[in-house]
Design a protein around this nucleic acid. Structure first.
Lengths: 144, 144
DNA sequence: CTGCTTATTTTGAATGAGTCAAGATAAGAT
DNA sequence: ATCTTATCTTGACTCATTCAAAATAAGCAG
């Protein structure tokens, strides 16, 4: 999944061109799980210094809409991306620094997916975010 | 809860002054569940035209930190606020228009609160967001 | 392989929710 | 009633993200 070969398939299937920026962006997302846009841009620049930030934004948006990557944007923090998808995992977010970690669904096959009252909404996903303080920030807090 | 009297208690308990802007903001949040900041500002202005947007931002932030109101900010949408708190309810969010509705926790006492692996995070809350399309947008989509 | 069409990219400016900071005001203690 | 200082007003500013026009290159046709 999400190998350079695989992505070519996905893009072509969607009638999208396979371009250097797109391949570079996808590789960067795969190599830097939970990275924010700026990190992705830096990573892409290491190999392709001339790729513009706009191209990165466009690629990230495209991949997100194609379902190849997933955007995560917790309260008050900027967007982050990950290429691990389709396995219904969730995230722990640090209230202080915004750092993320993956959490497998603890209670089997998405028990929360069925809302008690859906208010007429057509629900297609249940997202769970665990809020807390990461180990690093806990240590920082102790130091003062 | 959250009556004008009650809030006076809360503010004083936290050594905070009871000011017109603060009382107005809290009333506005109570009267407009899930309103965004601009809606709150407009509502406040109806009674107190001279209150600045900064005072509203400050009040919202203060109340949020005191746990009197709750901030909600789904992917790609601006912040919204609600004064219904402490009952562990969740939200359905419309992917298209960003509208919100309340959903009671379907599976009793927060079953998702315990992550399978907390990665050393000190977790204090599990937030569940149901994603879908609201009735209005479903109708719009049919019309084309 | 060469040229052509047009989807993508580049470039550089613009947007807008939210924040910062200095001086003015008013809550509430004395 | 006066004073102290938390809070508010004003207005500029930030910065992630988006917009738009001109330049480029993906990949199809010949």
């Amino acid at each position: 999944m999400t190998s350079t070969d695989g992505i070519e398939q996905v893009l072509k299937a969607a009638s999208m061109r396979v371009t250097q920026p797109r391949v570079a962006v996808l590789a960067a997302v795969a190599q830097h799980p939970h990275a924010d846009t700026e990190t992705i841009i830096s990573a892409v620049h290491r190999e392709h210094p001339k790729v513009s930030h706009q191209a990165v934004y466009d690629s990230l948006k495209l991949f997100t809409s194609l379902g190849v990557i997933r955007q995560i944007q917790p309260q008050g923090h900027i967007a982050r991306y990950e290429s691990r998808i389709g396995d219904n995992h969730h995230h722990v977010v640090c209230r202080q620094c915004g750092n993320l970690a993956d959490v497998d669904c603890s209670v089997g096959e998405s028990p929360c997916l069925h809302a008690s009252d859906d208010h007429g909404f057509k629900i297609d996903e249940a997202e769970v975010i665990y809020w807390g303080i990461c180990p690093e920030c806990q240590a920082k807090d102790l130091d003062g």
